[in-house]
């Protein structure tokens, strides 16, 4: 049923599959990403954990989002009450900050499952 080359091939492919893991980990070390949405439309996905600032054009101006080891947050926003800046960090999967006046939303997405039951909606 198996030729000699069959066996060699199967072993080689298993090794190659396993070896792809460190390579993938290298390119995708974090499992969490922040999805930046404007008016509900995703415009950018940024990995969490890197130090960087991203500026996003919303409906009433520029929002600046800072990424660091703690998570992501708004540092500059055209909204008058600075509510989204006061809202602090998003860091866990499912966390959302919605900057109402500029229509910008930060949402943490990831591959991991949430620990506890996540609500379908939030009343606020």
């Amino acid at each position: 049923m198996f030729t000699k080359w069959d066996k060699i091939l199967i072993i080689a492919l298993i090794v190659a599959s396993a070896a792809s893991y460190p390579a993938i980990r290298h390119f995708f070390p974090g499992e969490k990403y922040v999805s930046i949405e404007v008016l509900g439309e995703e415009i950018k996905v940024v990995r969490l954990g890197l130090h960087k600032e991203i500026s996003v054009r919303g409906i009433s101006g520029e929002s600046i989002i800072r990424f660091d080891e703690f998570g992501a947050r708004f540092v500059e926003s055209p909204s008058s009450y600075k509510k989204c800046i006061g809202a602090g960090y998003v860091k866990d999967v499912g966390d959302v900050i919605h900057c109402e006046e500029n229509g910008v939303t930060l949402r943490v997405i990831g591959s991991g499952r949430a620990d506890r039951a996540k609500p379908d909606f939030i009343t606020r």
Binding site: R25, F28, S111
Partner: peptide, 14 residues
């Protein structure tokens, strides 16, 4: 947006 599915590549290859 679901680029994290790449982490599943080794599993799905095996």
């Amino acid at each position: 947006r679901h680029r994290e599915i790449f982490l599943l590549l080794p599993v799905s290859l095996i």
